[in-house]
Simulated assay, not measured.
Amino acid sequence: MTHTDKTTRPRRARRTDAAQNAERLLTAAKDLFDEHGPDAPLDEVAQRAGVGNATLYRHYPTRGDLLVAVYSDEVTALCDQGRALLAEPSTAEALFTWLDGFVVHIATKRTLALAANEHSGTPRTELFERWHDSMRSIAERLLARAQRAGTVRADLSVADVLALTSGAALTSTSTRHAQQLLQILRNGFVTTKASAPPDAPSVR
């Protein structure tokens, strides 16, 4: 056996173990947060996953990191949807279809979103920043496309749109209520051109 064989095999095994531990931690955290909310003890997450606390903090240094990782698949799916909507002919409908998914996501994960951002007054973590940047990038592209087409007010910034939409989600009494609030916001976002039929030609 060569020196390379001796060193790479244990290294590969460690990487496999680390990936399995991370997956077990996410599964345990999701179950625990569903049962007890985002303030559930992190020690219990490690215990359910069958790993030590040191392993938990090595993978997820803060509660915010763990919370964001728990629902990262949903964020990825929402961003994928946004990229697909960039090909839709109706620019306003594309933007508001995505915002509807966004408002539902925040409304159903409001406690997790707040905890990931504000828990213990700590700054946003690297994982949270990546999540935030991905969502903002998609929203910005959809908004800019609608503004170029003249279907959404030109004086709106992506920060305005996301702040108002997030506010609707976080103050709503239900997912349906959040969607209703978004429809009210829509009336203030769109121009008269946006009332054209969805299949009307638009400038990209």
Rank of each mutant, 00 (worst) to 15 (best):
T2N: 02
D5S: 10
T7F: 01
T8K: 04
R11F: 08
R12G: 02
A13W: 03
T16P: 00
D17V: 02
D17K: 04
A18Q: 09
A19L: 14
N21Y: 01
R24M: 11
R24N: 15
L25C: 03
L25Y: 00
L26W: 01
T27K: 03
A28K: 01
A29D: 02
H36L: 08
G37T: 05
D39E: 12
L42I: 07
E44F: 03
R48V: 04
A54M: 09
T55Q: 03
L56N: 00
H59N: 10
Y60G: 02
P61F: 11
T62W: 07
L66E: 01
V68S: 06
Y71N: 14
E74W: 07
T76R: 15
A77Q: 14
R83Y: 15
L85P: 00
S90H: 11
T91G: 03
T91N: 06
A92W: 08
A94V: 12
L95Y: 10
F96D: 05
W98T: 02
L99Y: 07
G101D: 03
F102S: 06
F102V: 04
T111K: 09
T111G: 05
L112I: 11
A113H: 01
A113S: 07
L114Q: 08
L114V: 09
A115T: 10
A116Q: 08
N117H: 12
N117L: 13
H119Y: 14
G121Q: 14
T122C: 10
T125D: 03
L127W: 07
H132N: 12
H132E: 11
H132K: 07
M135N: 02
I138F: 07
E140W: 05
E140V: 03
L142F: 11
L143G: 04
R145N: 09
R145M: 12
Q147R: 12
R148I: 05
R148W: 05
R148A: 08
R148P: 02
A149K: 01
G150T: 05
T151L: 15
D155S: 15
L156Y: 06
V161R: 06
S166T: 14
G167W: 00
L170I: 08
S172R: 01
S174C: 11
T175V: 14
R176W: 02
H177D: 15
A178M: 05
Q180G: 12
Q183D: 15
V190F: 07
V190G: 04
S195E: 10
P198K: 15
P198W: 13
D199A: 11
